[in-house]
Structure formats: structure tokens, C-alpha cells
């Protein structure tokens, strides 16, 4: 009996591995997905090592040099300098860390809370399901950007507060997704078998159901990353959330607006950075979905 119980997960793992291998083969066939993966990889590398190799680290820390205000892009300042004489290239590179970190945090918190709510609602059903899902529906009717703005404004500036504010409106999507998957999975034979062997609710959810519904959650997370980065930048642009001197792409763009069109480089480079980051994650997420969701692949 013990040997059998040990053998079953082993073969499940290997079949999952086989699926992943096939998926990767399909993924490789789409050059758009590969482009997305490359952009995301480069972005992560820049975020990790960028702040330590930028040409003007003192500008990232907030120091100014008014003598070199509004220099156009040159060999010395690749992306030019801004109204405080700071090197825009250094600021944009350093900003990648904040955008990626905040984006990851928002998606992770949203996915975690949403998965928990969705799993409980789907598994227990009945009035638990009814209450939790109506709450999620209600959340979907409240405009998420305005909600995030209100919460962020009340909590005050800072990255952590901004992440909290955005995550509040982020979980219902995951809750709906996970609930549907759990309802489909909980009637499967292997769950019945686990229950018959005396496994508790927590164990069934954690060890038997969740690993099987992880793929759609991960795909949604990768699709959401781009949108999370966009929301972070939007809050920065409106002037709520991260405040200078922290170099955040959205707030850089918002300051640069005042100096249009003469000093276009102060806006165009941070703006393009937001676009590229979001585009990369969207290409990657789209590719992943095509690989794992047979319905979307045609």
C-alpha cells in the first residue's frame, strides 16, 4: 500500500514534466512569445544589476546638478538630462526595479488572496460560496483605478501603500478563476480517492487540488504582470503613490509633461520603458496561454 501511494505521485510528476516539455516546444515555435520572453529576461537583468552599473548613481539617490539641466541625448547622457540636471538614463534604469518589484508584489498578493478565496468558495459551495462570490462581483463593479487612487491617497505615499491599494481590487479575478477550477476538480476520482483514504480538507486542497489548477493561475499572473506595471505607473503619473526622488516611470513622465515639446526626451524614454515592459509581459503571457490553453490555440 505504501509503495503504491508513493509511486502514483511520481508518475504524475513525470507526466507533468512531459507536458511542460511539449509546451516548451510549442512555445519555441512562436517568435512573438520568444521576443516577449527575451524582453522580460532583459528587464529582470536590468532590474537586478542596473542600479549598481548606472553611470550616475548619485542622481538615482536624489542629488541634482542644475548646471547640466535639459541636456539633449548625447554620449555623456544617453537619454539626456531632466529639469534637475539628472541623467534620465540612470533614472529609467533604476526605475525598472521599482516597477518590476511593485508589479510582482501586486500580482502575488492578488493571486494569493484570490486563490484562497476561490478555493474555499469552490470547495465548500453553499452559502460560503454565495457570500464570497457576491463580494467578488461587487468588487468588479467598483472602478479599480479610482478605488486604488482613493486608498493610496488615504494611506499616504510609498511603494508598500501603493501595492496594498492596487491589490485590494486585484483578487476577484483570481477568485473567480480558481473557484471554477476547484469545482471542476473536486469531483474527480483522485480527490474522491484521497477523501476515502481519510485525507482532511486542508490536505486535499493543498496537495491534490491546488497543484492541478496552478497552470491557469500562473498564466493569469503572467498576463496580469503587464497590467500591474501599467497600474503602478498610472498611479505615479497622477501623482499618487511613489513620490520623487524615488525614480518611478509614471511619476518621471508626469513631471516631464510640463516641459513638452522642447525637452521631449524627459518624457519619451520613461514612457517607452513602461510600454516595453508591459509589451514584453503581454507577449510572454499570451504565448504561455497559447501553449497551455488548447482552446485559445487555433
Amino acid at each position: 500500500m505504501t509503495t503504491l501511494a508513493e509511486k502514483v505521485p511520481a508518475s504524475a510528476t513525470s507526466s507533468r514534466w512531459e507536458n511542460a516539455r511539449r509546451g516548451f516546444y510549442r512555445f519555441r515555435n512562436s517568435w512573438l512569445s520568444i521576443a516577449g520572453l527575451l524582453i522580460v529576461l532583459v528587464l529582470f537583468i536590468i532590474a537586478v544589476i542596473g542600479p549598481s552599473i548606472v553611470p550616475y548613481p548619485e542622481h538615482v539617490a536624489g542629488s541634482v546638478s542644475t548646471a547640466t539641466r535639459f541636456q539633449p541625448p548625447s554620449a555623456l547622457h544617453w537619454f539626456g538630462t531632466n529639469e534637475l540636471g539628472q541623467d534620465v538614463f540612470s533614472l529609467v534604469v533604476a526605475g525598472s526595479q521599482i516597477s518590476l518589484l511593485a508589479g510582482l508584489a501586486v500580482v502575488a498578493v492578488g493571486a494569493l488572496v484570490g486563490t484562497l478565496v476561490g478555493a474555499v468558495a469552490g470547495y465548500f459551495g453553499g452559502w460560503t460560496d454565495e457570500v464570497l462570490m457576491r463580494l467578488a462581483d461587487l468588487k468588479l463593479t467598483v472602478p479599480s483605478l479610482i478605488l486604488a487612487m482613493a486608498v493610496a491617497a488615504a494611506l499616504g505615499p510609498g511603494i508598500l501603500n501603493m501595492v496594498i491599494a492596487i491589490s485590494i481590487s486585484w483578487w476577484p479575478g483570481y477568485a473567480r478563476l480558481v473557484r471554477g477550477e476547484v469545482i471542476a476538480k473536486k469531483e474527480e476520482m483522485f480527490v474522491q480517492a484521497a477523501r476515502a483514504l481519510g485525507a482532511g480538507t486542508g490536505r486535499i486542497l493543498r496537495r491534490h487540488i491546488l497543484p492541478n489548477i496552478l497552470t491557469p493561475v500562473i498564466i493569469k499572473m503572467s498576463l496580469d504582470m503587464g497590467f500591474a506595471i501599467l497600474t503602478v505607473a498610472s498611479l505615479g503619473f497622477i501623482g499618487i503613490g511613489v513620490k520623487p526622488p524615488t525614480p518611478e516611470w509614471g511619476s518621471l513622465l508626469s513631471i516631464a509633461r510640463t516641459y513638452m515639446p522642447d525637452y521631449w526626451w524627459t518624457a519619451v524614454f520613461p514612457g517607452s520603458a513602461i510600454f516595453l515592459a508591459v509589451f514584453g509581459f503581454n507577449l510572454l503571457g499570451d504565448g504561455l496561454r497559447d501553449v497551455f490553453d488548447p482552446k485559445a490555440r487555433r
Binding site: L230, A233, S234, F237, G250, G271, I274, F275, N282
Partner: peptide
Amino acid sequence: AISMPRFFLGLL
């Protein structure tokens, strides 16, 4: 188009 921040597009 989905990836383009609306505020950046507006500015451009």
C-alpha cells in the same frame, strides 16, 4: 495597443 499606457499615448 493594450500595452501602450494611455497617458503616454495621449502625451505623444
